[in-house]
Amino acid sequence: MDTNRGSEEPLVTIRGLSFSRGARKIFDEVDMDIARGKITAIMGPSGCGKTTLLSLIGGQLRPDAGSVRVDGLEVPQLSRRELLQLRKRMGMLFQSGALLTDLSVFENVAFPLREHTGLPVPIIRDLVLMKLEAVGLRGARDLMPSELSGGMARRVALARAIALDPMMIMYDEPFAGQDPISMGVLLRLIHLMNEAMGVTSIVVSHDVKETASIADYVYVLAEGKIVGQGTPEELKKSPSKWVRQFMDALPDGPVHFHYPAPAYMEDLLSGEDR
């Protein structure tokens, strides 16, 4: 989309973001910028709140403190109606695909168009076929979600996410559990969407190599903070222990191998039942 290009202001600006679940702090004063028309990767170990960050950007969760601005709009302060309007310009690819299981592939992609556009049936058909063609699944239009492989389901979900030509797409762990072929297909698609449509892309992932190969900018999150950021090349050279452990897939480091526990010997000799 042309609106994404030629503007220096970031599409998403996060300042002083704090968020907790119960007593556990997921984010502690996080600042982040997502540049327009670029692929920004958010990486970090499992459970560091990557998916939560997408929910905060999409307005599904409200932060405890701080600001989340998307295209100039302060997301936590939007009314429900304004939020829904904003979401029409955002696409989100869920980890599971989250296709509507009672609708066929065609109807799933047509769903946002039917809900929001009121276009005549033949035009909706053409649009759906174009989106499905883009992800290579035009021939699968009559299948039901239960008949799709994991990779195909994600591609259909991607076709659905781009149905309304959004300004940005958020990908939640798009490569998790994929075989090398579907991973390659998804990588190419994410890259293509960004190149061809100029869509701002946020890719949340822990697949370091794959994500780094397409990302323009990377944030590494751990324990509620940004522990590293920069282009993939910069991060490869980063001296930070956190970044090193994550980028080099080391089993132990600042993120410990062991979950916090009392001393091993004490635990064995404590005489407790469990």
Binding site: G58, Q60, L84, Q85, R87, K88, M90, G91, M92, F94, Q95, S96, A98, L99, L100, T101, F111, P112, E115, H116, A157, R160
Partner: peptide, 21 residues
């Protein structure tokens, strides 16, 4: 099951209110 499989969340992100739909 729709909630568990994130279908309701997906609807919300597509600006469709699951309470209405």
């Amino acid at each position: 099951l729709m909630k568990t499989t994130e279908q309701l969340a997906a609807m919300e992100m597509m600006a469709v209110d699951p309470l209405k739909r």
